[in-house]
Nucleic acid binder design. Sequence first.
RNA 1: GGGGGUGUGGCGGAAUGGUAGACGCGACGGAUUCAAAAUCCGUUUUCGCAAGAAGUGUCGGUUCGAGUCCGACCACCCCUACCA
Length: 845
Amino acid sequence: MSYSPAISEPHWQQAWADADSFRAKRDGRPKYYVLEMFPYPSGRIHMGHVRNYAMGDVVARFKRAQGFSVLHPMGWDAFGMPAENAAMEQGGHPRDWTYANIATMKQQLLPLGFAIDWSREFATCDDDYVAQQQALFLDMLAANLITRKSAQVNWDPVDMTVLANEQVIDGKGWRSGAQVERKELTQWFFRISDYSDELLAALDGLTGWPEKVRLMQQNWIGKSRGLQFRFQTVDAPESIAEIEVYTTRPDTLMGASFVALSPDHPLVKSLAEHDGRVAEFVEECRRIGTTEEAIETAPKMGFDTGLKVTHPLDPTWELPIWIANFVLMDYGTGAIFGSPAHDERDHEFALKYGLPIRATFGQQGMDLAQADTLVAKAPYVPMKSETVTYVRGFAGQPDQTGDEGVATAIKAAEQQGWGEGVTKFRLRDWGISRQRYWGCPIPVVHCDEHGTVPEAKENLPVLLPRDVTFDVPGNPLDRHPTWRQATCPVCGGPALRETDTMDTFVDSSWYYARFTSPHAATPTDRADADYWMNVDQYIGGIEHAILHLLYSRFFARAMVKTGHLPPTAIEPFNALFSQGMVTHEIYMTRDEKGRPVYHLPEDVTDGKLADDTPVEIIPSAKMSKSKKNVVDPVDIIARFGADTARWFMLSDSPPERDVEWTAAGAEAASKFLGRVWRLADEIPEGGDDPDLTRSAHRAIADVTRAIEGFAFNKAIARLYELANAIARSPAGGEHRRAVLRILAQLLSPLVPHLAEEVWAKAGGQGMVIDAPWPVADPALLEDDNIVLPIQINGKRRAELSVPKTMTKEEIEALVLADETVQRFLEGAAPKKLIVVPGRIVNVVA
RNA sequence: GGGGGUGUGGCGGAAUGGUAGACGCGACGGAUUCAAAAUCCGUUUUCGCAAGAAGUGUCGGUUCGAGUCCGACCACCCCUACCA
């Protein structure tokens, strides 16, 4: 008989299901909530899913064995554009496409044997989830966490929808790849920027998060301290009497040589109405901003309005007002003053348009002429912590650091009453309106009399109409003959429904909370939320380091404010782990025109195709359909079983790093698991082997530590060692069985099906999944005799086997008597003799 | 431009400042076999027959002792980017 995962894996999965082993229960035990980022139902699972969920499963099973009440749920991030795209391309309905994909993927996921509480499963497109998300929306609206404002948005002309800034990559839509246009629309916004400071400050407390992710969030929030003030214009139309600017370098104000407005600035719009050339220039900026290469190489472009402002420190000094393409409307006030001496962009702009370049400071000790020379060809931008000499300063000592210069400049402006120190953030409000069908409808109506009115809670959910088509671009909700017709909850009169749906990031911003009570008639059940929150361990890809995690942190705050989560859940994820990708070599040939043709791994043997054509092997990259370097988990499970896939995904590479899938590695994993099975299948008679007991206890200690430290590759290395030790050991009978039971327990989080087989064969009671995690006996972790390496001048030259209890003096005597040591010493006494008990000896000759 | 990270055998990777290369892959040798697959047992950092010597990107430093700590440099990777 031999190991047959195709039979045993479904058997044990059934046994676990029969025992309802994975249902999360609120009981007296301490709880543990482990969550992996839920998948988008694209249609098939891939190796990345296997790796992600295998890691979560190890944690879930390990904590379960340690006596925790474990919550380990699974769901589907089910709204989003691919469903609509599929409907456009192949016909059909997004809803049908999505639920069919969910069914397929669930059938692919189940054979992996994950310890998931499937009774909590939901999809974000379920009517129930939509209902609770809308209830949450109304509560947030009432709590002033949502606002509606007109905003410049990124418009994707292909998908006919608005994109968030972060969904625009190099000026193109992240899904469609189309050039993004600017467009003004009234949008719904979550007021995340109200929480900028708090979201930033709270990062310090997230000690269970990778430093890297915290840093990325910190940069994204982008806090800066600067001065805000108004320039008075000279002889300008009344509508532009003053221009408000923001600067982080107010200390360079005496080097100002121009004021520049963003092309999107409201003042520019009013100027454009009177001056066709302004309108033309703005138009040109927009064109440049959205053409192919422009983003990288965009030249500085400016337009002199001919208008002037007066300098706040010298009313007789006038500066020209320009419009410049490099000034962003989204940041600060959309207007700046240019100080070319100490800013690269301003310097480039000044050189191009012949504007003056005047230093405000130079290297320490420089006089005015030297400083001006210094900045003539290139700007001087030292670290703000560096001490410089101000030659055109207006506040503080001539010699001070940039930081001091900024602080004293702000102070002076405030004292003189013409400006104030302000803190700005890069983080902007989160626009959630999408002109799409397949998303959660925003539950408001527009009434002629009462304006925009929230839908009444008793009228929820506002569900999507099913009878829609996707034969033309744009939002089918706009075209629907009756869906928009609604009743105003205030006056009962006729009203029109909002046709925008929510950004799908909204759906994933609170699903972790919903899992604590997935069937509650409110967004959460407080008793459940209080018990299960927070997520103790969250696991997912680094690609969500900023958006998803930041939005989730905002939502947790919003849910605390609206009473849906306890205040302790304000940071919802105690610990975060970012796992690496699954990669594979790429196999390529070229067609007659030299274009690359990619080949699937299963079509390549020994670097050749079936017809003997050699393929070019390109180094590993993330598995992707376009490069055809994909391995389908379904095929691997069919061939080797789930445990092999799980084992290989966790072995070799550290979890945070990329892992390369290789056929040889998968086969090796399968071979090892077969070997373990045979070890349990053929248990010889024989006696005890104390060395084996020691090996087992060392393995318990090491594997436990490795799993706790997310070092699954190291846990696996120790399990190889234990299996090898058993194979070599003369132990037999009950002693061998006892050690095999320990092996089964240690294997169970990683390869749970095989572990049950081994447990059963080795005479374990019940199922290994119900056995408490073993604890190592400290007395068995060390040998009575230890091998002490002897270094001479720091190089290992000899070794000494001594009893653990031997004293330092006895060891010293033995070392000096050692043949090798004597040869090196050549009769002389050692300069120094260092004995680190139980560790090492170093002889300094 | 800014920020972060990583450099260890043919490969993936181990090493609380204390025997560098655990464990695995691959390779090589052997056993078993009519033969092969599977399985089992060895060897496998480099140079050297050996004794031995060298060795963790480069150069320096701290230390009895450095892959690990400090400084400079080189290379590669990732993120981010006109943020005033």
